[in-house]
Design a binder for these strands. Structure first.
Length: 494
RNA sequence: GGCCCGUUGGUGAAGCGGUAAACACACCAGCCUUUCACGCUGGCAUGCAGGGGUUCGAAUCCCCUACGGGUCACCA
């Protein structure tokens, strides 16, 4: 087989979408698996919808995910330019060729005329399809239209009675009839090509061997097949990947509010790129064994189109979260902490340039929660007992604090606190022992009141670590304050 | 509506003519733990959309029906 060359061809009309990212990933994986090249080409022919900077942002997100390209607008390559709007002369050349060969024609219909035709067909119960009434205009007729000021587009002459067949790498043999396809526009009046034309010319010229794209393009394929043939280009292999559905089983629409679907948003929530890559690889594709945690590197080894499903994939956010948690657990603490800082900062928990000591302290706080984080942003809520100024006691905590033995325990603990200056986990342990000895309380009777008094809640990470990190001053203040306000706080609990 | 595509437990998802129909998420229970979380162990569901075929044998092949989806643009 010739070198495998694949491409991802986004239009710069928005953010990088989950579906787009997956298509890009599959394309990347296939190319890399076979030692080939992955190309990113920008389909910017819809100039009305293009958004300034969107292409750059999408590419930045791809890079963030670890999907790197061999050829594109930024790094160049032997088959550039890689932005459609910079390839105008190329399209023109091929359109002219088709025109000269009688395989395409200037079409003078107006939008109003087309709409009227469409309505009439619909009224007759027919499938709307361009009639091709202006296929064979005489030079006089054309001159007349030109004189009226009509600027023609160029349409492709779809041959009659032709069966179009191709073997999709995922869906197998797919058959269409040319009679179901009307003459379609390949070049707009202003010279910009349409997608179905540009994509063929570009893929052929860029020597793309495998076209991987979403299933919504399946029915575009026969049109493209026609163009490949008319231009004498070699037809690449096609692979139409299944759609991605939301939890309701509907296609993810860009306006769908029920699901987060742009890569940027996941990045902002504190998802790790490895987790996203791993997860979207599993959208429509399944590995052979039972393992399902894979690095990008591993994926390039084991990915194959044969194992891509035909059925639509449902985007299961719960599983994504779980997977992200898996990666957070495995990540080095420093990395998790570095990712957590911005969230804590935004929440007002920490100041901006962190002093080295403070940074170390916050890192230790993060370490207490690393194993249970599924989204880095959760750190704010989880760790708030470390940053809270005023204590708020949960109902459960109040109940614990209402216990008979509590005042004694707290007094004993406070006494211990006054004797130390620096706290570490071992020391806290020793203090607990001492309190136990003095009060005779142990186990939950001992630990729960202290936890409740110090953190305000009855659940949380290791108590010794928590107290050590909180520091003697804060812990003392909290316990003292609780003792001072004990009756008020618990009046409705007794 | 025409043309295409799909349909496996609560969810995701293996399976490609002969399995007790994987596995994962979720959930439940036990263990671990001063609590929570993590982790481990076990359980769970009683699922191959329905109906016809083909076959000794069908989730796997064929047909029909139902349901879901995609597409029919001077958008990609």
């Amino acid at each position: 087989m010739a070198t495998v060359r694949t491409r991802y061809a986004p239009s710069p009309t928005g953010h990088l979408h989950i579906g787009g990212a997956r298509t890009a990933l599959f394309s990347y994986l296939l190319a890399k698996k076979h030692g080939g090249q992955f190309i990113v080409r920008i389909e910017d022919t819809d100039t009305e919808r293009n958004i300034e900077g969107a292409a750059d942002k999408q590419m930045a997100m791809l890079k963030w995910l670890g999907i790197e390209w061999d050829e594109s607008v930024d790094v160049g390559g032997p088959y550039g330019p890689y932005r459609c709007m910079e390839r105008m002369d190329i399209y023109k050349k091929y359109v002219d060729q088709l025109l000269a060969e009688g395989k395409a024609y200037y079409s003078y219909s107006t939008p109003e005329e087309r709409e009227k035709e469409r309505q009439e067909q619909l009224a007759r119960g027919e499938t709307p399809k361009y009639s091709g009434w202006d296929r064979d205009l005489t030079p006089e007729q054309r001159a007349k239209f030109e004189a009226e000021g009509r600027v023609p587009s160029v349409r492709f002459k779809v041959p009659e009675g032709k069966t179009l067949v191709f073997d999709d790498a995922i869906r197998g043999r797919v058959v269409f009839e040319s009679d179901d396809i009307g003459d379609f526009v390949i070049m707009r009046p202003d010279g910009r090509p349409t997608y179905n034309f540009a994509v063929v010319v570009d893929d052929a010229l860029m020597k793309i061997t495998h076209v991987i794209r979403g299933e919504e393009h399946l029915s575009n394929t026969p049109k493209q097949l026609l163009i490949y043939e008319a231009l004498g280009f070699e037809v690449p292999e096609f692979a139409h990947v299944p759609l991605i559905l939301n939890a309701e089983g509907k296609k993810m629409s860009k306006r769908d509010e029920t699901i987060i679907q742009f890569i940027d948003q996941y990045k902002e929530l504190g998802y790790l790129p490895e987790a996203i890559v791993n997860f979207i690889a599993l959208l429509g594709w399944a590995p052979e064994g039972e393992e399902e945690i894979f690095s990008l590197q591993e994926l390039t080894q084991i990915f194959s189109l044969e194992r891509v499903s035909k059925a639509p994939a449902v985007f299961d956010t719960g599983k994504l979260k779980w997977m992200n948690g898996q990666y957070i657990k495995k990540a080095p603490l420093e990395r998790v902490a570095a990712l957590a800082f911005p969230y804590l900062e935004k929440a007002g928990c920490i100041e901006s340039p962190l002093s080295p000591e403070r940074k170390e302290w916050v890192t230790r706080v993060v370490s207490l929660y690393q194993e249970q984080l599924e989204e880095i942003s959760q750190i704010v809520e989880l760790s708030d007992l470390f940053f809270q100024e005023e204590m708020i006691y949960s109902d459960e905590a109040k109940e614990v604090l209402a216990g008979e033995q509590v005042p004694g325990v707290l007094q004993a603990f406070l006494k211990q606190l006054k004797e130390v200056r620096e706290l570490d986990a071992d020391q806290v342990k020793a203090m607990f022992k001492q309190v136990q000895k003095e009060t005779g309380c142990k186990g939950k009777q001992l630990f729960m009141p202290i936890r409740a008094a110090v953190t305000g809640v009855v659940h949380g990470p290791d108590l010794r670590e928590t107290i050590a990190l909180l520091g003697a001053e804060t812990v003392t203040a909290r316990v003292q304050s609780l003792i001072d306000n004990y009756e008020v706080l618990l009046e409705n609990k007794r």
